[in-house]
Simulated scan of single mutants.
Amino acid sequence: MVIRFVPNYLPQITTQQHASLVFCFTIKPFYLLMVSVLNLFFDYVALIMPVMELLSIQNFLLVRKPNLRNQLKNYTPIILHYFVPFILIKVFVLFIESSLSVLVWIGLSFVTWVLLLVFLINRRYSYAKVATIILMTLIFSRILATVMF
């Protein structure tokens, strides 16, 4: 009801003011919150997909027992398929907001991505534990970044 009748009573307010009135938020904090949530979701999906795909391949590797060179040769296309878009989007953010804090955050994201991928592939965890470890690590890194920057 409020959404429908506010423009009739206050025709001089802008669309942005109308949204603020209806949804009761201040523009910048809500925007930053949504960017942070979407960034967390993107980082989570960008890491969970290759880990799950590589964990599904591990059952075949247990039977065949390839050497390290063949494992890397088979893992590389899968990892690059997910890693290249991840890095491209992070670099795009660096071009938009070129600052030292963004560069440090991209470096931390890169290191976290690689370490989690290596750690989780070499362990025998269930899918639920892997997803939980990834999510908790990313949430902790967000909290750490908030404190640092």
Rank of each mutant, 00 (worst) to 15 (best):
K28H: 04
V37S: 15
L54D: 08
L10C: 15
L38K: 04
I143A: 04
I89E: 03
M49G: 03
S126F: 01
R123S: 01
V111T: 12
A19G: 01
T14C: 15
L115R: 15
Y125N: 07
I48Q: 12
H81F: 12
L135V: 04
A46T: 11
S36Y: 09
L108V: 09
P77Q: 13
Y75Q: 13
I133T: 08
F83C: 02
L88K: 05
A19F: 00
L94H: 06
L40K: 08
L80I: 05
L138Y: 13
L40D: 14
G107P: 06
V51T: 09
I13A: 14
P11F: 03
V51R: 07
P77M: 10
V147N: 10
I89F: 14
T146Y: 14
L72A: 08
R123I: 00
I121L: 05
P50G: 07
H81T: 06
F149W: 15
I27A: 09
M52E: 09
N8C: 13
I96S: 08
V2D: 11
S56A: 13
N8Q: 13
H18D: 00
I89Y: 10
N8D: 15
V130K: 07
C24Y: 01
M34D: 08
Q71R: 07
F86S: 05
V118K: 05
I13P: 05
P66A: 03
K73T: 15
I13D: 05
Y9S: 14
S99Q: 13
L116K: 02
L144A: 12
S126L: 02
L32A: 11
R124L: 03
T76G: 03
T14F: 10
F41M: 06
L72Y: 07
Q16I: 10
V84Y: 05
S36N: 04
I121H: 03
T132L: 12
I87H: 06
Q17I: 06
M49Y: 04
F83I: 01
L117E: 12
F23I: 00
V45P: 00
N67L: 01
K65V: 01
